[in-house]
Simulated scan of single mutants.
Amino acid sequence: KILSYLDDSGSGRVDLGMFYAVVAPLCGGHLDKRKRVAFEALLWRPVNEGGSSQITKMDAVKYIKLLRAIYIPSQGMSEMLEVHGEADDDTSSSMVTFNQFLGMYDDSEWGFGIMSTVVKLETRDRNRHGNQVCSVCRYPIIGSRFKEVKTGFSLCNQCYSEGKVPPTFKQQEEYKFREYGSEVEAMKAKCVCFSMQSHKNPIAT
């Protein structure tokens, strides 16, 4: 979707500076750092070369409109109809500092106002499996967690899809996994299992 907006002519080529700026909101790190990366990516574009610490207002306006069209389609689509031809005297000659860029970016009426939502989604995603890490790649598990029923090791989606297992368990002939979308699901399954075992082996009184 991002490429389709950046390559409006269908040439198969995109402006790398604008591309990096558009994906910056999805990168890790503090919000201010993401905005700084976006600004510096716009500075890196050929039209802004020359050691300037400012970008053209036309680039800033185009960037905000691209963000809205890509990430908030219902609000940004109509704006993109005019963005490629927008070159009035005010925007084509004016320059924008980083602080002015932040003001445009954070504008509640027209700017890119979903950064807080993006961060909330990221935080929730990172916390879904608590401190669980993949037994193969050792990275924190984000997304589905695949737990081997017999031995209890866990895999991330990537390692599971590639059929990887920890070296210490490779002697096992076959594996049976349960998929958990969150740690809450894993805890529920554990409670159900414990309850079933209790019924099978009642405590003598």
Rank of each mutant, 00 (worst) to 15 (best):
Q171E: 03
N201Q: 12
E162Y: 10
L67H: 02
L16Y: 13
G152K: 15
T91W: 06
Y5W: 08
V37M: 08
E179D: 14
F98H: 06
R145E: 05
E162K: 07
Y175L: 04
D15L: 09
S4I: 14
S92A: 15
R138C: 01
V184R: 13
G152Q: 12
S161E: 04
E49V: 06
P25T: 09
D8T: 11
V23N: 01
Q75R: 13
K147R: 15
L6W: 10
S195P: 03
D90F: 15
A69T: 07
E86S: 14
I2D: 04
S195R: 09
N157P: 02
E86A: 07
I114F: 12
M80L: 05
Y160N: 01
Y139C: 05
L121T: 15
A21S: 03
K65W: 10
K120E: 15
K65N: 12
E79L: 02
E174S: 10
V47I: 14
R126P: 02
E122A: 11
M104K: 13
S74Y: 06
V192P: 00
Q172G: 02
V23M: 04
K57H: 03
G163V: 06
V118H: 10
D8K: 10
G181S: 09
F112L: 05
L42R: 00
G130M: 06
L16N: 07
R128H: 07
R145S: 13
G29N: 06
S154A: 15
G113I: 04
E148V: 08
K164Y: 06
N48Y: 13
R34K: 13
Q171K: 15
E185T: 06
S135E: 04
V83S: 08
K120D: 15
G29I: 07
V136Y: 07
K190G: 05
F153T: 00
D125P: 05
S74R: 11
D8E: 15
Y63R: 00
K65P: 00
L67P: 00
D125Q: 13
V165Q: 02
I141F: 08
P73D: 03
Q172C: 04
M95Q: 13
L3R: 07
W44R: 04
K65Y: 12
G181C: 05
G76Y: 09
R145P: 02
Q158P: 01
F146K: 01
T56W: 12
Q158F: 13
A189F: 09
L81W: 04
K176A: 07
L3Q: 09
V149F: 06
H199C: 11
V118Y: 11
